[in-house]
Design a protein around this nucleic acid. Sequence first.
DNA 1: CACTTGACCTGTCCGC
DNA 2: TGCGGACAGGTCAAGT
Length: 291
Amino acid sequence: MPELPEVETIRMGLSQLLPGHTIKKVDFDWSKSFPNSDNDVRQFLIGASITKVRRRAKVLIIELSTDYSLIVHLKMTGQLVFASANERFGAGHPNDSLIGELPDKSTRVTIQFSDQSKLFFNDQRKFGWMRLVPTIGIPSLDFFKKIGPEPLSDDFTWRILRERLLRRPNSNIKAALLDQTIIAGIGNIYADESLWGSKIHPSTIVNKLSLQKFKTLHKELIFVLKLAIEKGGSSDRNYVNAKGKKGSYMNFARVFRREGQKCPRCETTIIKIRVAGRGTHICPHCQVIRQ
DNA sequence: CACTTGACCTGTCCGC
DNA sequence: TGCGGACAGGTCAAGT
């Protein structure tokens, strides 16, 4: 589910909600959701308080007062929802129709704080995970060592985008954009949206792209990611933010999940094809493979 | 090597 | 209404 804009939206929410809270109790119903949550590790959590919430790529880093951090990957269907002491989701809650009462059958981990507020880690498909790691060791974890640059950082220039993508010169551009070791945080939605904005066919081989196309793609990528953050992310299926609320980017999407509708640029009917093993949405008129 | 496919899971939707 | 199959925002490992 969540790509960079969704994870960033959750991060901003949790940054307002979590710091200062002290962990009192941790429950989980699916051991793979918390692979190292044996008793010893859980003892490291109890009594720790949260100091800060960061993001790198699609991973959230919840820093604790104990020099340990909880790192969380939401994969396709993960949610992190905070509930204050007396807050009850479901009927009567302002977000009524979005999520029901928590915990529900997709709740994998519940972290209870000393003031009775709770953080729920829900994950329908059970692909996501939460791990406790020493904060100082995070940069040297395999996952973080291999990850590419953050596309919204100030020093991410079009030249860097080009240099990174050219590490997969013979891949199609969509596969390269989805490769987290090339650039961090892009997933299926924003790959399709930025390629449409750049008038690039997703099957185009990277080394066939002109300098101008890299410049345009750079601009479109940043535009789409920033717009998505502004809109609180995309709730195509079950994404919600830290308060259980949906994002509205899907109302602004130009091609993603819009097969059968008109291209907003040229009115050609948008089609859905398969590229890099993923459902891919394009305008067959605007996005053509050039030799 | 570089790229593609299958696996990890549950739930929903679509066609028969 | 029931049932099988395809598909879903991500990432690995295994296969070619």
